[in-house]
Design a protein around this nucleic acid. Sequence first.
DNA 1: TCCTGTCCGTCGGCCAGCCGACGTTTCAGG
DNA 2: CCTGAAACGTCGGCTGGCCGACGGACAGGA
Lengths: 220, 220
Amino acid sequence: MNAHPAAIDLARLAQATSPEGLLTGFELKAFPKGWLLSSPDGPRDQVFIVRSGRLRVYLAGENRELSLSFLEAGDIYTTHTPTYVESVAPTELWLMDTRSFARKLATDPSTTPVMMRVLGRLLSNAVTLIEDLAFREVPARLARFLLGLVERRGQAQDQGWLIPLELGMEDIASLLGSTRQTVSALINQWERQGILQRQGRRSLLIRSISALEAQCPGKP
Amino acid sequence: MNAHPAAIDLARLAQATSPEGLLTGFELKAFPKGWLLSSPDGPRDQVFIVRSGRLRVYLAGENRELSLSFLEAGDIYTTHTPTYVESVAPTELWLMDTRSFARKLATDPSTTPVMMRVLGRLLSNAVTLIEDLAFREVPARLARFLLGLVERRGQAQDQGWLIPLELGMEDIASLLGSTRQTVSALINQWERQGILQRQGRRSLLIRSISALEAQCPGKP
DNA sequence: TCCTGTCCGTCGGCCAGCCGACGTTTCAGG
DNA sequence: CCTGAAACGTCGGCTGGCCGACGGACAGGA
């Protein structure tokens, strides 16, 4: 659910201008905003590392979409999985097809641990999402989402924690597998209860962490 | 959702009695039926290959369980993910901790492709399950489950396809993220409609593949 | 043969949350 | 300072499917 798989040192590494070291064999390409890089039907044979920009990984049903993750600089991904990948901002990628990548792995074992960590991260995220969809209700998912933001990007204030909100209601709903209306209603209800407070359109002030935690059944 | 990740040649390889070749470094262990091998809370640092028996991989919520997969001879798995793993029959495993395994991967690149395939398979299954939970309703999931069985284990008959059903209603429901009652009601409804037919307690005769396919929105 | 445990079929009540609809707020570009 | 489009807030109706409950069917044990 959370983005940032293995953003550790790759973010800096990916800033290179020529493919050296771990990047050997990758090819730099740029994409405009709104470009569909991969779909479940199309070929699924690429590995890439994000140099800059922003991508959305999502699934699509009849008349709904479920975002799995947003990828940013330093994130690595493979189109092995039947998902859609779309740039939501101008984006630069280090690209490589999986066949070459497999060869690279076979000859250069130092790449393996990175790849394993990435795949492990992806799997963990997927499992967490499955748990959410199967067991938890929307309020719990939204609460966990907000708590995650506090943890990763929250700024302490005397009134509580300020978190940036670069996503609209619609986008959040899509990340949670819910709808705009439900998410909107929940946030406004919580605001009325004093749990949080809107701070302009693009940020949120969390006034009571514990009240949000109370919405999540059984999470330490 | 479907079991059998990389059952290709591993099933035979795992029959060995001493750890040679790919099995180098693994340790053979036996478990009785009903043994909990791993849980989201406990240590999650093992890789194993099933030599014989049967394991269930599942998630647990407040008062429900969701089975992710059943593992059988030749299947490989890692407890990296926060899931429960339990033996549902007496089981023999080739075990190894992830640290040693990482070292093995670094020194013996031939293991890497196997591992990548396995992880890829796990990811694909996870994504498919997410799609099901997020977009499809229970009838569609059940229909796809049955169609999968026909494809993998169906025996042609003049009346239709006979499929073995070694799982009870409860187990099937757990695989689909639904309940015993709902699944039972659906199957009996389909029986009344002549789509399928019970054949004793442990097998099912599918009379109309196309009727089942009609239950799945948009799947070629 | 009966008894007892396990599984299956079916019903009615109930509710989370999806959907459509419509009004209101926000904001960028003229 | 307008203005149109995009995003947000809120309402009511509707329904898939969960839950509890209960009775029947089919074992295996004694």
